[in-house]
């Protein structure tokens, strides 16, 4: 009706319940609103997926205290058991490094089998100035280089700040392994996808701590929320001098090391 009135040049019928201008405006509005939806740019939230765990309410981090680490590598063993990490050396979500700083300033770092089989004798012990263990794992950076380089969006940062790998979507290109400045990723020998620490996401969403934190006998690892003040991690962050690894890279790690030696990187 409106169309024919437009083409013939006649004025709109005053008896019509819908004004032509109003009708065209409505059509335009519907088109504008519907176009992004049709193009798949905007999606409506999926129905019926209300979950008890809301990731937007959380932000996870970890505190590590090398002065408490005894190098027993129970964390490495627990991590491998919990996350099906291949047992062979060189595949680690977390591992223990031994630092030996010599009298002449020379720094030696080793991690034989991640520390699982123990650490060998220190050669020439009289020349050791200081020596200690440092637990290492994915730093779950706030500005993660691995996520930036992933060409398909298979590695990502969740709303609660955990870096995960979508194993069904990963194409195994190894870009992320190259990009990680902390050496925290590896190519899974059977699944042929990038493997890494998940912060035991399957435990965390159920309110449990990661396996490495659960088994650490000396409390050298403290897991918790970074936003909520009343947690052991908040206490740890208040009472210790903290450092992150390779701060100059601006990756903004969420692993906070207490009283870290300057030689550790």
């Amino acid at each position: 009706m409106a169309d024919s009135a437009d083409q013939s040049g006649h004025p709109p019928s005053p008896s019509g319940s819908v004004d032509r201008r109003e009708f065209l405006n409505d059509i335009l509005g519907v088109c504008c609103a519907g176009a992004p939806l049709l193009l798949g740019i905007v999606r409506l939230p999926a129905q019926g997926t209300s979950r008890a765990y809301d990731p937007s309410e959380h932000l996870y981090g970890m505190g590590l205290d090398p002065q408490k680490c005894i190098g027993c590598a129970r964390c490495v063993v627990a991590c491998k058991a919990e996350n099906d990490v291949p047992q062979e050396p060189h595949y680690f979500n977390t591992w223990i490094e031994r630092y030996i700083i010599r009298e002449d300033g020379e720094v030696e770092v080793d991690s034989p089998n991640g520390g699982i089989d123990g650490f060998g004798r220190i050669e020439n012990p009289a020349q050791v100035r200081r020596t200690f263990f440092v637990p290492k794992l994915c730093n779950h950076c706030d500005s993660p280089p691995c996520v930036q380089v992933c060409p398909v969006g298979a590695t990502f940062i969740t709303e609660d700040g955990v870096i995960l790998v979508d194993e069904e979507y990963c194409i195994g290109c190894r870009y992320c392994i190259q990009a990680c400045p902390y050496g925290a990723r590896y190519m899974h020998p059977e699944r042929h996808v990038a493997g890494k620490c998940t912060f035991c996401y399957h435990r965390v969403v159920k309110g449990k701590v990661p396996a490495c934190v659960e088994v650490c006998p000396t409390g050298a690892r403290i897991f918790g929320e970074l936003t909520n003040r009343a947690t052991p991690l908040a206490r740890f962050r208040r009472f210790n001098d903290l450092q992150v690894l390779k701060p100059h890279l601006n990756t903004r790690p969420k692993m906070y090391y207490a009283n870290l030696d300057a030689e550790v990187s």
Partner: peptide, 28 residues
């Protein structure tokens, strides 16, 4: 583009669910 990609960010939202559903070994 796979299903659920982009629901919560530049990734497959279903991956988070499948990772969350992994089996626990340590009871605590």
């Amino acid at each position: 583009v796979p299903e659920t990609f982009g629901d919560r960010g530049h990734y497959r939202a279903a991956a988070v669910d499948s990772i969350s559903a992994r089996e626990q070994r340590y009871a605590g």
